[in-house]
Structures are given as C-alpha cells and as structure tokens.
Design a protein around this nucleic acid. Structure first.
Length: 1154
RNA sequence: GGGCGGGUAGCUCAGUUGGCUAGAGCACUCGCUUUACACGCGAGGGGUCCAGGGUUCGAGUCCCUGCCUGCCCA
C-alpha cells in the first residue's frame, strides 16, 4: 500500500470497478421471485438548471449511505436516478443565455409561431443535455450508487407517457378542469404560479387614504351590475347625507360634495374598482344605501355595497383585537380583477371584473378595460409609475387624505422576485381538495403521527396505521398534515414553452344569442351540458375504438360566458394524431385528408353532427391545442410511478431496451424512503402521496375507495439545511456557497461524505463556517466579513493574503455582486470549510491504520477463532466486544436515520478504540500471536464494512488489499464474502451475536485505561520524557490482579512502565491514587520536580474537596436518602468514601512534599 | 398573526425515559521527528448549560413567562 492516501489516485479507478461489475444494478425479478427483499429509494431529481451544490451533496450522500447499507444487508437495492426539467427555472436561465448569445428574446421566437417555439425549446433541450451530463458526473464523483442504467428525465418518453395518462385520468374523473380565476401572475416570466411558488416578503410601503366623491347614479345604465359613465351622475352633498342620518355629516360644509375614504396600499388599482364596500353593521351604512361613488378621472360610477368582510374602524364598533381595525376607514375599494379578497366580494355581489393590466403588469386598456375616460395618462405605465401618478393626481385634486408608512407582506415570485400580480386568466386546476386526493393523503399518515381532531377519518381499515406514511424527524408530520388541511385547488398550467404540453384540444365558438345546441333542451344548464357531454363522449368512444385508440379520447363540454366549448383530451400520442385529420389547404374550407376506414368516417360524422351546429365551429379534430405546459411538479408528482414504467411498462421496455421494466413497479413501489428537504414536503411529497395513491387504487384493492391506493414510500426523511457560519442560506448572490467538486478535489469524496454525515444531526440545521483558500499560498483562512445592503454577513469583496497582506484576492461575493472582477493580480479565492479537514484526517487515519494492520498480518492468523480462547487477552476480548457494540449502535442509528450518530460511532471505534488503544497494545505482541492476528484481521474487515457506506472509495481500495489475505473468522461475527467481483460494496454487512459482547471485560479494560491515563498524567506533570522507562509501585493485591489479567505488557507499551514493584519507592517518587489504591511512580527523572508535584497535588486536592463537598451535601439532604432510588444513594455513598480516601492520600503526599 | 426548531467551551455541535464532578471535534497551551499516521501521539486549560420563575430529594433535560435567532405558513 502506498504510504499516503491520495483520493484522486483511486477514485476514478474504484468507480470504474463498480460500474464494470454493475454493482448497483437492481434486479426486480429477484424480488418478485422472493429471493431478496426490496429496498428502493427514488432520487429527488435535481433540476437541470444548474450544477449541484452542497445541499445536493448532503441529500445524495445520505441516500447513498442508506442504499449502500441495505445493499450490504442483502436487500435488492434500487436507487433510481434522474433529473427534473424544472420548467420555469430552466426556461428563465436559457432565455437569459439566448439573449446574451444570440440577442434574441422569447418574443422574437414567438413571432414564428409554433416553429419559433420549437426552435426555442430546442435550445433549452441542448442546455438540458449539457447539465444532465454534468449533474450525473457530479453524482458519480460523489460515489452515488445509483442504478445508472435506469436513469430517467421528467420529460423523457417514459415519463411523458405517465404525465399524459395521469392528466387524462384526472381529466376524465373531473378532477382537472379549466377555470377563469385570479392567479398568481409573475409579470416578468409572464406565467401563472402555484400558491407555494409565491414567497411572502415584508416590504416598507405606504397606506394611502383616497377620497371617492359620492354621487347619485344618472339615467344611463339600468341594472346594478352595469357601470355608468359619469356625465349625468349627480353629486351628493353633505347636507343630503346629514338628512339621510349620516353620523358626522354636519361637520362638513353642507353644499360641498360628500365623499368616502378608502385606504389602500395599491392606489393604481383604483382604475379597476367596481364597487366600494362597507360592513352592513357600520352605523353609516344606512345613510349610504343606494348611493354610488364616481371614480376620479375614470368617471366610472360604482355602487356602495355592503359585505361582512369589511373591517369596521375601532371607533365605530370594530373589533379592537383586530389590528386592521385601527387602520380601517370602514370603506373598502373593491377591485375584483386585481385582489383575491375583492374577487370573492365581487363574486358574492356579482360585480363586473375589470382587468387594467397587460401581462407585463403595465396599465393597459387592451385587456378588458374600456372605460378609460380621462385616465389615459396612466395607460402604458408600470404598476409602480402608475401608483406615483395616481397619488399625485389625487393629491392635486384634494382627494388624497393621508399617506402613512406601512410595513406589510407582499407575495413575490420565487423565480423572478418581483411582486406577484393577482391576474384574471384561464388556467387549469387539479381539484386536490377532493377527498380522493387530499383526504386520502391525510389518511395515509401513520396513526401516531397524526394529531387529533380528525376531519378525514380513516375509512374501513383499508390501510393499517403501522404501515402508514412516517416522517423522520417526526415533527415534520405536522407540516404535512396542516398543509393538506389548508390546501387549495392546484393551478397546474404555466404559460411557458418548456414542459409537458397540456394534452387538450379545444373548440370554441360563440353561440348566437338565445340559441341552444338542441332546440328541445330546456336550458343550457348543467343538466343540459352533461347530457350533451354524455352523448358526445359516447360517439367519441365509438370513433376512438374504430381508429385503434379505444378509451384514449375524452371530451368535456361546457357553455361559458356565452361561449360554446368542447375540450378533448388525448391520452396518448397515437390518439393525438386525430387532431391532424383535417387540413385547410386553401385557407377557407376544412377537408378530411387522412385515410380512415368507412366505419370510422361514419363515426366521425356522428361527432361532427354535434359540433357543426354553428357554422363558425371548425371540424372537431382540427381543434387548437392548449398552448400552456404543466407545472413541473405535476410530472414530479408522478416520479414514483413514471420511473417504474407506469402506465405502460411494456412500452417503456420497448422504448428504452430495458427488458425488466414491467417488474419494477410490482417489485419496488412503494419505495422505502424519500430523502428530501423540508421545503419539498408541500411541493412534492404531498403530491406524490396523492397521485401514487390515486393512480394505484384499483391495483391495491378493487374494493378500495377512490384514492386509497399504495403509498409512494413508507418513510420520509427530511435532511437538514446547510447554512453558512452565520446561519444564512448558502446562495450564489451571497457568494457563501461551497462547491462539492472543489471539496472532492481538495479533500476527496470520502472526506466530503464523512463530514456531511457527521453534521447531519436530527435537531438542527447545519452551520458550516465558510473559509477561503488563498490562491497565492493554497492555505485556508477565515475571511473578513462585511454586511451587504440587505444586512447579510458576506465575505468582503477583496481579501488580503494572511501570509502577505500586499497580495490580494477576489471573493465569490465580490464576483457575484459585480463589484470586482478577478484578474491575474486579483485571483478568485475558492470557498471551502475547515470542517472538511475532519473527514480528510479520518480517511488518512483509516488508511494508515489499515496499512499498519496489514503489515502485521504477513504471517497467517488463526483461521477460526473462538472468542473464549485462552490465546486472547483482555485487550483482544475488549476489541471484539467494542466491535460488536458498534455494529449494534450503527444498526440502530441507520434505522432511525441518525447519520451523525452513525458517523460518530465509527469514528470512535476506529480512532479511539482501535487505533489509540488496540493497535498500540498489540504492536509488540501480534507478530507471535496468531489469535491476535485473527482479531486484527476481522476487526479491520468489519470496520471497513461499517465505514464503507459513508466512505466508499478509501474502504474499497483497502479492501482490495485485505482480499489477498487468507481468511480468518471469529465465531459469532458474520462477515459474508462479496457476491460480485470481490467488491466491498457487494460484501455482507457485519453481524455480531450478543455473545461477543462482554460487559465484564469492558469494565476491566476501562479500569486499565484509567490506570494508564493516571500514570501518563503524572509523567506529563513531571515532564518525564516519553521514552524514559519508569517504575510503578503497587500493592501486592493489585500486582496479583495485574498479573492475572496479563496486562503487564500493556502497561509497558502504553505507560512506559518498565518495572512493577510491590515495595514503596526508596527514593523520590510521585504518589497518586487509583480508585481506593495508593500507588506511586518512581525513576521519573534524575530529580523529581518538587514544584510540579506540589501544583499537581494542589489541584488534585482542590478537585477532591469539591467532590467530597458535593457528594456529602447530597447525602445530607434528608429528601435524597428517603426518595431517591436506593442503588443511587448507595452509589453516592461509595463514591464519597472513595473520594475521601483519595483526598487523604493526596493530603499525605502533599505533607511529604513539605 | 399561526406553526415548528434552535440558544450548552473561543467556534461547530452531542447530551436517550430528570440521577456520577456536563462531553466531542476544531482552535488554544505544554511535551514528543516513540519504526502506521505531525492530516499524528500524550497531557492540559477553558462552560453563571440565554434570563427569570415553578415542579422535584435532584433540572442542561419537565412546566410557565420573557429575550434573542432560524425556517415554514398566512
């Protein structure tokens, strides 16, 4: 073995060995044939948007540890790898890139219609290919034992089929539908976002109080819903209000026009106001009933309405405990088009909805606002500009009553970070509030992790609670539960190009007023629609069967806002081809051009009968496809199913050449555990649970209620979040991230992995102080920190070399903030963390320990060793016992997902027990003791196995050397040989029988450790040279005991005790106690250092005095002796006696010193 | 505003159902080129366990209040 372990010399070769042996390839058929138990993990697919960061390294290291442990335990282990297309994120990144490289924006591509879209998607595809390779490479370099042959991508053919089928089934079940609703609109990326893609941020804004003049409505406009232009509206005066009994009206000039004051943080939305609301209990309500206000400049006359939602001011009887009551004026401007609450009020009062903005959130009269009046000056302005202008105009007219600073939280896009605009648009929704989704997810939880107050009771014992979904650490179960209790319908359409396109083709036409599709139908009510739909689908069904797409087409029909709509969903690409049956070659008439069997043509005509009622309608199958794509999480939600070939594993097998695809789902779903971050509980975990259960409910049990199918995984382990040394999230903009590849380069993959496991405790997030590598010296140092504009602690942009202050460097923050650019004089300093040294040191320690152990194993060892053999000494028995204890502790830690405990156990076993004690003890004896060599042999072997899941590379390399030795075994310790290519990663997990544990030996050995430490302490106090042999003076009894235990050699080796005598020292000596025994060491040096001895004794006496006082104090407490458990009281008494004896010895020794 | 964490040595963290004088690594001090390892070995110093109150024979641990801090949700 080389003297030094250099990771880079081995890592590639080891990895190639694993791959050549297909060591990580899982065989589902072994599971189905009952030859092995399954263990499966699905990778949370990393986004193809960027390279992996340290958080990914942690997440994947922990998964790999689990996978490797279980593989060694004999489970058929599948770790399924893959990547996620990450719609909005990837598209945004590529848009920026294309803009920079080609100078073209997405709008430029959009001008070429579908072709431009395809060209743009091609560029994203290329980007994806590049990053997918990069991510895969990173995972491999970390040592991830994924089944690489099965790698998937959320948009590949296999996954796409799952998305199609899932959408189709939900669509058919009525759980996916289209609706015009207020969505969270991101005006920069110009797409809708789901609720959980919106981040609330506190901002410093203003509360503006605006006055709206009161009027009587004029003659124009009959119904309350229509809005009148302002010309003939008549002002309402304060006098009139006084007459109507308006409280306080007489405080205003009587013949002046009266007003009401509304308060808002967004004055510009007044352009879209369609009412002013007040609480019906407001004492002013009666006087204002039937009156209107006229919106300044716009001139729109809108009603004053009454709604319970409006908060009354505290002065007028509002709820004093509601903080809003202190700000409230009692009047609420209602803008249904741009505020979710106002939207609800609008629905209750059937108010018109006016959209005053373009998709980029600039004020626009082109998107549903057509009574601009004198408000032209705002058109074309951004939200922010318009806000300033509106305030200025109100102020100029005296309509601005007040402007006060106001801190409030505003939703921001998680992607573009601009404020979300509530925006009215057509979107697709999944009705996750349905009991078969939300309710089923809640019922899936393990019983004891659920809280009380059960609104979704478990039904019919479909699932036993002990099989339920379980969270580690368990506190996260609550996050999952409350999320589902408060869930709202899930908006799944995104106005993007990168993603799974919604498989719906639509026909839309305006019906002439008062016409009905079938004259004999009473009304275009729901009944009528559903009858139409049933008939339509019946005809569609026949047609689909005739063209070989049975069951793959389904239509939803509805009348909306006077439009006549048919949405047809195609479950497969084959079925999708029907939408190209027609062409319009001359631009006027649709023609059927495709070849169809006569029966199919007849069936097609039957469908057309129902869609050609109106001449403006195109033939049904020339309908236009929905332009939107699905939310990325929709395909992620299917990951447990899609990666295993659902819904058509044979097709997946054909497409990929992976013949055993059909066995995957039956063998590995549900998987064992999902390892992910806590922010993903809502975004992903929830949706996987809902979908996996919903889509497997029939396979689970034909009698199961809807949505009560299988879980996607039994356990969810939430890994901690890595933060920098100041508790801040690592991010590119703060320049405080550490690149895992840098650490692999500088410390090795094993070191990276070890440290990530070691810091993964279950209680806290991980603080990893970030250091810099000086590019001039290569040394690591802690940088100087400054606060950035947001008050975050970041490394100063420029740092000095600690060794030479004239040399400077640029930090990642300096680069990211654009303040400095690296140059030859100012090189970029890489981020690192001194924490990773722990892992590197540990790997080195293992390497050296193994090298040394192997050097002692050149002679054969006892082939089959009985641990009770008389050839074994105390230390040997002790080592075996410690090993067995560590195996148990590691097994428990792994089962509890306590990675830090696991790392700590193997650290102590190798470093403290094996290296510090055992190796030192056997150094002089192993050469002529074959039994001891057997212990060395199995201990090293077992430790390599225990360490392998955390540090796979270094252990695999060492194992190659162990493999050349003749085998040795110890009874009670199972170390099964590798089942493939002699690889450690395929070797058996160590199993120790309880008989290997020996409590008596462990406590005896602990006593010897104490004795040795006591002697070493005296030596150190007296500055005795480490190699100077000394003499130990003990009682006859202790001497006999030491001899019986056979530890004389150990004392020589570890404490430098050359002679042991039973007579007191003749000359100068240092006395000390060992339990109740009085011992001394002599021959320390030519002369004893009296001062050193004195100060040692002083400290000892002080310590002992403290102990005696504490112990006797406890015993003096009357309650203690009476109430504490008897054995504890006895222990205290014994302890006190010991301490008193030691004290006496120390005092006597002190007196001798004079 | 609601929920969940955290506050223990200079730093990063352990501390199981309350029970020996509260532990580890790094950093620090002293000694050691001891034939595996200086990325090492041996020894040592360093802690009002955030504050206040309570329960208890006994509280870092349980309860209450407050302060600081992080995350999630509204």
């Amino acid at each position: 073995m080389p003297k030094q372990f250099r990771p880079r010399d081995h890592e590639d070769r080891v990895r190639q060995g694993w791959e050549a042996a297909r060591a990580f390839h899982a065989d589902p058929d072994r599971v189905l044939e009952g030859r092995a138990k399954p263990y499966a993990i699905l990778i949370p697919p990393p986004n193809v948007t960027a390279a992996l960061h340290l958080g990914h390294a942690l997440n994947n290291t922990l998964q790999d540890v689990l996978a490797r442990v279980h593989r060694m335990k004999g489970y058929e282990t599948l770790w399924m790898p893959g990547t996620d297309h990450a719609g909005i994120a990837t598209q945004t990144v590529v848009e920026k890139r294309v803009k920079a490289l080609e100078g073209k924006s997405r709008a430029d591509f959009a001008q070429d219609g579908e072709r431009g879209r395809a060209a743009f998607v091609e560029r994203i595809q290329a980007f994806k290919d590049e990053y997918e390779v990069r991510i895969t490479e990173q995972l491999k370099r970390m040592g991830c034992s994924c089944d690489w042959e099965r790698q998937r991508f959320t948009m590949d053919e296999v996954c796409a089929r799952a998305v199609r089928e899932a959408f189709f089934q939900l669509f058919k079940a009525g759980l996916i539908s289209r609706g015009k609703r207020l969505v969270n609109w991101d005006p920069v990326t110009q797409t809708a976002l789901a609720d959980d893609e919106v981040e609330m941020e506190e901002i410093e804004g203003f509360f503006y109080s605006l006055r709206y003049p009161l009027v009587h409505r004029g003659s124009v406009g009959a119904g309350q819903q229509s809005l009148a232009a302002g010309e003939d509206a008549m002002p309402v005066t304060w006098n009139e209000l006084a007459v109507r009994g308006y409280p306080g009206a007489d405080e205003h000039p009587g013949d002046a026009q009266a007003w009401v004051t509304v308060a808002t943080t967004r004055p510009e939305t007044y352009l879209g106001d369609t009412a002013v609301a007040m609480n019906p209990k407001d004492p002013r309500a009666k006087a204002l009933r039937g009156l209107f206000v006229e919106l300044p400049l716009v001139g729109r006359v809108i009603p004053v309405i009454e709604d319970d939602y409006v908060v009354m001011p505290e002065a007028l009887g509002g709820d004093a405990s509601d903080p809003k009551a202190q700000f409230a004026t009692g009047f609420l401007k209602v803008t249904p088009g741009h505020d979710p609450n106002d939207y609800e009020i609008g629905r209750r009062h059937e108010l018109p909805i006016i959209n005053i903005m373009a998709p980029d959130a600039s004020i626009s009269d082109q998107h549903g606002w057509n009574d601009v009046g004198n408000a032209h000056l705002f058109v074309g302005k951004s939200r922010e500009e318009a806000r300033m202008l509106v305030v200025r105009e109100f102020e100029a007219r005296g309509w601005l009553e007040r402007k006060s600073p106001y801190r409030h939280s505003v939703g921001h896009s998680y992607r573009s970070h601009v404020p979300i605009e509530p925006y009215l648009s057509d979107q697709w929704y999944v009705k996750v509030t349905d009991d078969s989704l939300r309710g089923a997810a809640l019922r899936a939880m393990a019983g004891e992790q659920r809280s009380g107050g059960d609104a979704h009771p478990t039904g019919g014992g479909v699932e036993k609670t002990e099989d339920g979904l379980r969270f580690f650490p368990e506190r996260y179960a609550k996050t999952f539960e409350t999320w589902h209790e408060n869930i709202r319908d899930w908006c799944i359409s995104r106005q993007l190009w990168w993603g799974h396109r919604i498989p719906v083709w639509s026909l839309r036409a305006e019906l002439p007023p008062d016409t009905l599709p079938f004259p004999d139908w009473p009304d275009p009510s729901d009944v009528g629609v559903s009858e139409f739909e049933t008939e339509y689908n019946e005809r569609l069904r026949k047609f689909a069967a005739l063209i070989g797409c049975a069951g793959q087409l389904y239509a939803k029909c509805e009348w909306r806002e006077g439009d006549y709509c048919i949405d047809v969903c195609a479950a497969t690409e084959e079925a999708e081809r029907v939408f190209t049956l027609y062409s319009k070659p001359d631009g006027s008439t649709w023609q059927l051009h495709a070849h169809l069997e006569p029966d199919a043509i007849v069936a097609l005509r039957r469908i057309e009968e129902m869609t050609r009622l109106n001449e403006s309608l195109d033939p049904v199958f020339s309908a236009t496809r929905d332009p939107d794509v699905l939310d990325t999480w929709f395909s992620s939600a299917l990951w447990p199913l899609s990666t295993m070939g659902w819904p058509d594993a044979d097709a997946a097998a054909n497409a990929t050449g992976i013949a055993d695809f059909p066995s995957l789902l039956p063998a590995f779903n549900p998987t064992n555990v999902l390892v992910t971050g806590r922010d993903i509980i809502t975004l992903w975990v929830s949706r996987m649970v809902m979908f996996n259960r919903w889509f497997t409910d029939q396979q689970q049990n034909p009698a199961a209620r809807q949505g009560e199918g299988r879980l996607p995984f039994h356990h969810v382990y939430i890994n901690p979040i890595i933060q920098d040394g100041h508790g801040q999230r690592m991010s590119k903009s703060l320049g405080n991230g550490v690149d895992p590849l840098d650490i692999i380069e500088s410390h090795g993959a094993d070191a990276l992995r070890y440290v990530l496991c070691q810091v993964a405790t279950s209680t806290q997030d991980i603080r990893l102080p970030v250091d810099l590598v000086c590019p001039h010296t290569g040394k690591t140092f802690s940088p100087k920190f400054i606060r950035n504009s947001q008050g975050r602690l970041v490394p100063a942009p420029i740092q000095e070399c600690p060794a030479d202050p004239t040399k400077k460097m640029v930090t990642a923050f300096g680069l990211a903030s654009g303040q400095v650019k690296p140059s030859p004089e100012l090189p970029l300093a890489r981020n690192t963390s001194a924490k990773f040294d722990i892992g590197r040191n540990f790997a080195t320690k293992l390497w050296n320990a193994a090298r040394f152990t192997l050097s002692m194993l050149t002679e054969p060892a006892t082939p089959v060793l009985d641990p009770a053999s008389p050839d074994l000494g105390v230390a040997d028995r002790w080592m075996l016992s410690r090993l067995a204890a560590a195996i148990d502790a590691v097994d428990v830690a792994v089962a509890r997902y306590e990675f830090s405990v696991y790392a700590g156990q193997v650290y102590d076993l190798l470093w403290r027990d094996f290296c510090d004690w055992y190796l030192e003890i056997v150094k002089p004896t192993a050469a002529h003791n074959p039994a001891q060599r057997a212990v060395l042999r199995v201990a090293l072997d077992a430790m390599l196995r225990l360490l392998h899941p955390i540090m796979p590379f270094v252990t695999e390399v060492i194992y190659e050397h162990i493999g050349t030795l003749p085998t040795a075994s110890v009874q009670g310790l199972s170390l099964d040989a590798p089942d493939r290519a002699g690889l450690l990663c395929r070797a058996g997990w160590p199993r120790a029988e309880a008989s290997l544990r020996d409590q008596a030996i462990e406590s005896t050995f602990a006593r010897m450790q104490e004795l040795i430490t006591a002697i070493r302490e005296v030596r150190a106090q007296h500055q005795v040279h480490p190699r100077r042999p000394i003499t130990l003076h003990v009682s006859i009894e202790l001497h006999a005991e030491l001899r019986a235990l056979g530890v004389m050699e150990m004392l020589r080796t570890l404490a430098g005790v050359e002679r042991i005598e039973t007579v007191p020292p003749a000359g100068q000596a240092a006395e000390f106690t060992f339990g109740p025994q009085r011992l001394a060491v002599s021959n320390l040096a030519d002369a004893i250092d009296a001062e050193a001895e004195k100060s040692r004794l002083e400290k000892l006496i002080a310590d002992l005095n403290k102990s005696v006082a504490a112990l006797s104090g406890r015993l003096a407490n009357p309650g203690y002796a009476q109430r504490a458990p008897a054995h504890l009281v006895q222990e205290t008494r014994d302890e006190l006696e010991r301490k008193k004896a030691e004290l006496a010895v120390a005092i006597e020794a002190m007196e001798k010193q004079g």
